[in-house]
Structure formats: C-alpha cells, structure tokens
C-alpha cells in the first residue's frame, strides 16, 4: 500500500474525487476557494498532483482543444481505485480514532 499522505496531498486527492470529470488545476484552486474559503497556489496544486500521480492515486489525461486558454488543452486528473481505497482508509482511520476520544465537552473556564 502507498505510504502516508500529507494534509495538502489528501486535500488534493479529495478535490480530484469531488470534481470527478472536471478536475484540472484551475478548477481545483477554484473549488478549494469556494468550499473551504482557502487560497491555494496553482503551482503547488500542480506539483502535488504530479506527486499523487507518481504514487498511483490519480491518473491524468489531456482533454479536448480549448479556445480560451491560448488553445491549450487541459490536463484532467481522475482518481484511481487505489486513490479511492486510500480515501476510504483515511476516513476509516479517522473514524476509529474519533470513536476512541472521550466525549468532547467544551468547558467554559
């Protein structure tokens, strides 16, 4: 199994899964901004996506011709089965830990 994922990697992996067919650099940046109100750098997104690709969690392929970006095609990322498994596993691990927590009470001091 692939090794540990960093926070940003996990975020990217999740985003790719959410955006499904439409996951390319700018879309991910936009989605993170919309959903989490967080600014992420486009270059960092790209670098991380290629790393995830190396780990086999996502794949990528070029889309069709475009008109609005100098005619350049988009590179779309898709989550692989390994990627999905990884997400599941992460979720389970978190739940397991969550259950081990004593009930959270916010105490006013």
């Amino acid at each position: 199994m692939v090794d540990h994922l960093g926070e940003f990697e996990e975020l990217m992996l999740t985003m790719v899964a959410i955006l499904d067919q439409e996951a390319y650099g700018n879309a991910i940046v936009q989605a993170v901004k919309d959903q989490l109100d967080r600014n992420v750098n486009l270059s960092a997104v790209h670098i991380t996506l290629y790393r995830l690709q190396d780990k086999g969690l996502v794949t990528s392929e070029m889309g069709g011709a475009t008109t609005n970006r100098g005619g350049r095609r988009k590179r779309f990322f898709r989550i692989t089965n390994a990627g999905k498994r990884k997400l599941n596993e992460l979720q389970e691990q978190r739940l397991k830990l969550w259950k081990m927590l004593p009930e959270l009470k916010f105490v006013v001091r």
């Binding site: 650099g25 940046v29 790209h46 970006r69 100098g70 590179r75």
Partner: peptide, 16 residues
C-alpha cells in the same frame, strides 16, 4: 509533456 497542461492553467488564471 507537462508544459501544455501547466501553461494552459497558468494562462487561464492569468486571464482571470
């Protein structure tokens, strides 16, 4: 092989 995708994204963001 990476240039097209990256540059495209950058240019899109630039226009935005």
């Amino acid at each position: 092989d990476l240039l097209e995708g990256i540059l495209g994204d950058l240019e899109e963001k630039f226009a935005e």
